[in-house]
Structure formats: C-alpha cells, structure tokens
Design a protein around this nucleic acid. Structure first.
Lengths: 114, 114
DNA sequence: AGGGTATATACCCGATTGGATATATACAGG
DNA sequence: CCTGTATATATCCAATCGGGTATATACCCT
C-alpha cells in the first residue's frame, strides 16, 4: 500500500483520530490510550498497529509499557497533498507559498488565478 | 459515518485521488475520468459515488453525461484537521532545532501519485 | 520461580470494500 | 420508434476491516 493510502486510511477512523489527538499532549501507553473508549484492549492495540504501519506513531519501551508518540512525516505528506487542493479550490496562495517555502526554501511564482 | 471519516476514507484510494487530481483541470464526464484506468466503467461509477457521498464532488447533467466537478468544503475540513497537527509538529521541530542546533536530514520528494 | 501487569497475537465473525459482469435506465438523433 | 451512447444498478466474489474473546509474551517485583 502506498504511503498516502495508508495515511488516509488510518485517518479515516474516529478512534484512531482520537488517539492521535490524545498523543498531541505527549507520549501515552496503550492502557492510557484505551481508557476513554468502550473498547477492548486488543482492539486498541490493533488500531495502534494500523497507525504504526502507516508511520503515524512510533513506539518505545518502558518496562512492560510500549509508549506511543506522534510521528509527523506521514501527516506532513497528507497535509501537502491537501494543501495542493486547498490552493486550487480556495485560491489561497499564502499557504501554498508557506508550504513551498518550507519544502524547497524557494518561492513558486504563479500569476494564473483560478 | 462522520464527515471526516467519509472524507479520509474517500482519499485513501489512489484511483479516487487520481480522479480528484484530474478534476483540478475542470469538469469531466465518467468516460473521460475512466479513460486512464484499466478498470471497468461501473467500478469508476462506484468510486464516483464514494466521492459524491463524501461531498468531494458534485454532478451536473449534460444530455447523457453526468459531469463531475470538485467540491471544496469537505477537503477544507480535512485540511483544518491536519493543520492542527502541522502546527504541533512545527512547534516540535522548532524546539528540536533549538536543542540540537543544526539537524537537517529532511528530504522533500514531490511524490504526487495519480 | 511465581504472580501481577502491560501488551501482543491468534482466531472468529459480520459488515464493508473494490473489483468484475450483466442488465437497466436516460437521453439524442434519425 | 429504434439505435447508439453515457451512466447507473444489481449481483457476485474474494479480501479487508473492526470488533470480540482467549491466550501468549514480556517485563517487574518479591
């Protein structure tokens, strides 16, 4: 599966998005991540595996715990993909310039609007 | 299904992303959209239905044709969701830069699949 | 070694997905 | 009305998904 496929597929589930949202606050164990959900621990582990396979999280080792943390890169790729469309659909060139600037440290002149 | 669920799920398929990419150039009929793919017409119609149900495209009527065009709103929502994370990771990178001074191993591949 | 805790793996199951083919519908033009 | 064209719908099928329970593994502590 393509990276973008895996990223968007992982983001298509509300449980997984909630897990990512929780991880904004910092690392968390599986138990901690499972707590808000009416769902079994293995199901959460499965969601975490999907996120990990998509590269959206990575995991450490702390005794029996396998703390999860956010990984930015696949999110950045998904964001880049969406930014392209946002630029076209909304005519928002500021964001595109910011994106191109971040990616290539170079401005992308484009005078053709709409 | 939640709007974000539907949007991300629709974007998780490379055929559907390619269809959206094609629609950047303007409206297109089902036949025109199907042409680049080694796939039956009904399969393309099914993909279009997924995109339409997610609100990512809308359809008109031109004789027998049902031209498709891009719709911005759901994309904007998905983009907003990702933007939140972009801000976080940019913040993290700033902190990281502050700590490590110079750490540059970023590649910037422009790998838009279509 | 044995017990407790945290997490992963192995199946099971029903629903959904993404493809196919065959058929139905909608419309244009002679 | 009939034909051709564009598109949608109806099944079918294998694969994947998202949940469950039961069990295994990994690690800490006494």
């Amino acid at each position: 599966m393509d990276q973008l496929d895996a990223t968007f597929a992982a983001l298509a589930d509300p449980t997984r998005r909630a897990i990512l949202a929780r991880l904004i606050q910092g690392e968390a164990s599986v138990m901690e991540l499972a707590e808000p959900f009416a769902m079994s621990q293995p199901s959460i582990s499965k969601h975490l595996k999907v996120l990990e396979n998509a590269g959206l999280i990575s995991r450490g080792r702390d005794a029996q715990r396998r703390p999860c943390r956010l990984e930015a890169k696949p999110l950045a790729e998904a964001n880049d993909w969406l930014e392209r469309y946002r630029k076209i659909w909304e005519g928002n060139f500021q964001r595109l310039d910011a994106l191109l600037g971040a990616m290539k440290a170079e401005k992308a002149p484009d005078s053709t609007d709409q």
